[in-house]
Amino acid sequence: MSALLEAVGLRKTFRARGRLVHAVEGVSLAVAAGEALGIVGESGCGKTTTARMLLRLEEPTEGGIRFDGADITKLHGNALRPFRARAQLVFQNPFDALNPRFTIRRSLTEPLRNFGVAASEHRERIDAVLRRVRLTPPESWLDRRPHELSGGQLQRVVLARALVPEPRLIVADEPVSMLDVSVRAGILNLLREARDALGLAAIYISHDLALIRYVCERTLVMYLGQVVEEGPTAALIAEPAHPYTAVLVAAVPVARVDQNRAALPVRGSLSDAPPTAPGCTFRDRCPHAMPRCTADTPALRSISGDRRVACHLGDLP
């Protein structure tokens, strides 16, 4: 399976109050058409910055990005337009993603106009995309404005707006976190259907492994700007190889009474100053830390055909 989008060694450094902040430190990933990749981690782990680089909303400080075989790392302005039409972001907050004064028709026409689709095709494309997100019949939705819609309906419009330019990749950053639980499933099901029907590549970003498991076959776990584990989502949840993944799995609450209430296998918090190199950045919080974790920085290594982990546990020196 050849990759539609491939990123190698992405780094992003910001300057904040005179200090350098390493938001992303060497992330490599690939996603193929028809595949959904999850990126999971807490606020501040670099997952959103990674997504913004993949969409070229940020320029990487280092590293390369190829889309459909072409290097897009350094493209700017007009040279990026074809890519912009093919790689779309699904916004997190449907309540402020749409212009409140625009009708649905106008919100969906703008991207078509921006990407140079002939006006004669607009109506057909818009009707088709509204049917795809189950806002039917389309004509009853076209002239409504955002304030007339519920959160779930708004998120369908946001999804329609991302799909209307007929992208080949969609990136969704916490696509349902602002919605009520009762309507989240509807949006996730639509995302799955759209991917299957259109053969889209999809990247989902979330702090919630339960959500990621529902929509992504493969997942990267990020901690402090680095990928600490990567593999098939089901395997990574069933048998986490990195102690941090184990914490993320244990932290997800489940709607059952017989759940695990044991203390999380982690110390401290993300806000504590991370330890400096060399060594593992998770070592101060890790229940399994050993002397080697302070001496050597663990590299991402293969532990079976399709699983990789950056941890010394189980690795014979």
Binding site: G152, V181, S182, V183, R184, A185, N189, A210, V249
Partner: peptide, 23 residues
């Protein structure tokens, strides 16, 4: 009943989720 089927479980079976349609 609807609420308990509306959101994914991190360990449970991977049955399709069931939204409660409407508002």
């Amino acid at each position: 009943m609807g609420l308990t089927h509306a959101f994914p479980d991190v360990h449970g079976d991977m049955a399709a989720l069931v939204p409660i349609e409407g508002s």
